[in-house]
Design a binder for these strands. Structure first.
Lengths: 219, 219
DNA sequence: CGTGTAGTTGAGATGCGTCAATAGTTGTGG
DNA sequence: CCACAACTATTGACGCATCTCAACTACACG
């Protein structure tokens, strides 16, 4: 099953969402423009963040410039929470976005006195772990078609319309998330359209015409 | 850097290790023989485990029988700790091994009253997450040579001898961990030997002849 | 209406998978 | 100690999925 695909949100439209980190003193709301950097690998972990609006990617880079995107984060998601002194990933805005920043020190002190908060952090970490493990299965053992199908189904599940997907990210982002090249992503979209499983309505809009078929690809 | 490769232990020989989960009431020590199942995906999470001796793998299966090994766990490592009611992975003994089982209920109750314990769980989850993310980078963006080189260097780092690696697992296990086939693993070992970077002393013993070269492969 | 960026498509190369044969290793029983 | 079976690993030949390089197209923005 492709229940998660290592996205960072369980948010479903209409589902009630607990107010996270209520006890953590929050900092200002920050705004970033598309492709703007939020923090880099190795930066000091002064804060972590919760998205108000927009999409954020967290990723790692190889020395040759290639990139592996770890996850896409959407409204309500928390990212950048670390135990160590440095961020292990880079965070960048995929679209224009607004995020609330929480002071790390504040969170740690709160956790020391607020047991429920420690629980929330743990719960968050375990959900992230689950997604990372699902993502490993996808990266290690799936074909390009299966990767794209799972990706689209996952996006559809969290969007408002079950059959229409709005892509916030470029083909390059998708490729770097799925461990492919942009050419393979593009060709595979075209192939899925020829197979009548999807319709490329516009460059950033995809209609799922055969969810059953897409799901079956990943058997 | 290949600092971790998603293995589950930071243990270095001789390094002091804190006694984890001291406040959790521990159950009996269990013994498993090589290739024995410890728990399966979907099993109720009654317990989690700490390894006394031996090696354990945690993995997921696809419907076609293919497997993605998530991590190899060695003495001192904790595995099987979950938030949900069911295990999301399968755990199997790679070698004969002994593990201490901890009752989940006990752990949760302790965490509710023991703040330090909640912290330890969080710390464990964050380390697992870090490894899973490193593993995703490896699976998504590395060649077979780079995967094997990183794997060997990681094993060497945690073994007693920096230049000699003892493989507890079969080629199939290695392949399923790195997202390859046994043939590719075997061929790549042979190629690395031809390139004078390693020596296949015996089927389960590999001498690293050029750590610098191996490291450089992953640039 | 040009210019730049993002996406698509094609042709060819290649790395890894698949299938198949061989070799080595381990365990068992005579 | 040897013979045999079963399992594990290696090697080769070949095919295919994906990557690479390159040309072309579509769209956004001045």
């Amino acid at each position: 099953m492709f229940s998660s695909l290592a996205f960072s949100s369980d948010h479903r439209p209409g589902a009630p969402r607990p107010t996270p980190w209520a006890a953590v003193p929050s900092g200002p709301v920050l705004h970033f423009t598309a492709d703007g950097g939020i923090y880099g690998e190795g930066d000091e972990t002064r804060s972590f963040y919760k998205i108000v609006s927009g999409v954020v990617r967290t990723c790692k880079f190889l020395s040759d410039g290639r990139r592996q995107i770890d996850a896409f984060h959407v409204a309500g998601d928390v990212f950048g929470f670390e135990m160590g002194a440095e961020h292990r990933l880079t965070a960048e805005a995929v679209t224009d976005c607004s995020v609330i920043s929480y002071r790390r020190r504040g969170a740690e002190m709160s956790a020391a006195s607020d047991d429920g908060l420690a629980r929330q952090f743990l719960s968050h970490a375990m959900r992230s772990l689950e997604r990372a493990q699902e993502h490993s299965l996808l990266l290690g053992r799936r074909s390009a078609q299966q990767k794209l199908a799972a990706f689209l189904l996952d996006l559809a599940d969290r969007g408002p319309d079950d059959d229409m997907v709005e892509l916030a990210m470029t083909r390059l982002d998708i490729a770097d998330y799925l461990g492919l090249t942009i050419e393979t992503v593009s060709r595979t979209f075209s192939q899925l359209e020829r197979d009548d499983m999807i319709q490329l309505v516009s460059i950033r809009r995809i209609r799922l015409k055969d969810r059953g078929g897409l799901h079956a690809l990943g058997s």
